[in-house]
Design a protein around this nucleic acid. Structure first.
Lengths: 242, 242
DNA sequence: GCGCACCAGCTTCCATGCAAGTTGCCATCG
DNA sequence: CGATGGCAACTTGCATGGAAGCTGGTGCGC
């Protein structure tokens, strides 16, 4: 931040989060990965953005190698694509992509809800879900859409983490990373999400009573409704991608 | 294979598939990735195997860089782990891991079966599924367990590909790669898989008639039974991992 | 005999250089 | 004026060398 000569250009990632901090030696690859992912998630690198590793490396103050390796990871996660000898581009999402993502999310979340409902210690998970849901209600009452979205993300994150299945949670996280931008951008285009809190309550209730099938069904219905609300909106807006 | 001077050593991957072939320039990274993945899947690199990039690079006849990048991809897929400054080790699977994998597979496959059953062109998918199932029956009649396993893999692969959801199929493939070894090694320990063909027929029938819920339920039940057959076996054998 | 500090060897991490391939511009020709 | 050939700039692919760090063994002290 204090590196005087550095000019801000469109698409600037900024220097490394904390170059001089005493963290447990995060490797440069790790830093580049985190910075790039953050830049993509927050739309600093918009979909379709095309840049060279050289240029990104310069912005991050490191050489091409760690940037190259970070990009390989991001490509594996479906966030960017490397065009050989042409540069790296940030992947855009078509409505078709969003449909795919919703189908995967529905499968994972409903399975997770069922798994939690079948656990002995389901009450603990239910409590943390309820807390996140309360934050959503509070944010909605304050008309704070950003806080609502963050709490909603927390609710769903805890829903999959509560399953006790790390693989499932990791896959979910990857898919959600892909669609983060889309949710962010449509946040203010959608009708106010008043139904979510109630539907979440239903899921939590089914988990509490150990009704596996009900928990699965409600989790699925919740996402299906959200999908049916979002997809027509995207198509209607003629969003070819993003 | 004919490259005379090359000696076979334990854990030898073999030289690149076809060093002089006129393929459309598969990059060295791609070659290394494919070779390593194959070596892991076929147990040439057994779980727990620990080696250095240098050594692998020498076996593949390339420098460290492409090997390093291939390993990053494999790590992202959960097949290996890089211990900084210590080398790379092939991940082992605990019974716990297998439980996780089955849960994810059940979620993805049942969703996929439902999606196919809801498609207009479900008959085409049903036909290819039926063909794979016939190969399974034939192999079983010949007592050819390896052929049976290959056909079974094809059936399930087509089941997820038929969903028309590329992300779902890719995730499924990654998870199946992780568990390929385990299936391979327990193939001869399990009772003969006589039920599979019949259960597959049930799934295909439900798809044909467009019974979404039935297709989902049967796909789930099929994998759940396989899991309940395999997991106790693994624990019973005291398999701490693999 | 036992424990601890040190050191040698090995490993990945990262920077850099060269090579190969693609793009787009520009001069040249029809 | 339009089309085409070639060249220059820029890109990633890959090799290699130095730096930093972990491990395991060795020798010293107790």
């Amino acid at each position: 931040m204090e590196d005087g000569a550095r000019r801000f250009c469109p698409g600037m990632i900024g220097p490394l989060p904390a170059p001089t901090e005493r963290s447990p030696t995060p490797s440069l690859v790790e830093s580049a990965y985190a910075a790039l992912k953050h830049a993509i998630r927050t739309n600093v690198f918009a979909p379709g953005y095309q840049g060279s590793e050289q240029e990104i490396a310069a912005q991050l103050g490191m050489s091409r190698t760690p940037v190259h390796e970070a990009i390989i990871r991001l490509q594996e996660e479906g966030l960017v694509r490397v065009l050989p000898r042409r540069g790296v581009v940030v992947c855009a999402l078509s409505p078709e992509d969003m449909r795919e993502i919703y189908e995967v999310v529905i499968a994972l979340e409903s399975a997770s809800a069922g798994l939690i409902a079948a656990r002995e210690d389901r009450e603990a998970a239910a409590a943390t879900l309820e807390a996140a849901n309360a934050e959503m209600a509070s944010a909605l009452a304050r008309e704070d859409l950003v806080a609502w979205a963050e709490a909603d993300e927390r609710f769903h994150q805890r829903l999959v983490e509560g399953s006790g299945n790390r693989r499932l949670a990791r896959i979910f996280e990857t898919v959600m990373d892909q669609s983060h931008r889309a949710r962010l951008l449509t946040l203010r285009l959608r009708p106010k999400p008043v139904l979510s809190v109630e539907e979440h309550k239903g899921i939590v209730a089914a988990i509490r009573t150990g009704e596996v099938a009900a928990a699965e069904g409600l989790a699925r219905a919740h996402r299906a409704r959200a999908r049916d609300q979002l997809l027509p909106l995207l198509r209607q807006l003629g969003m070819r991608h993003l």
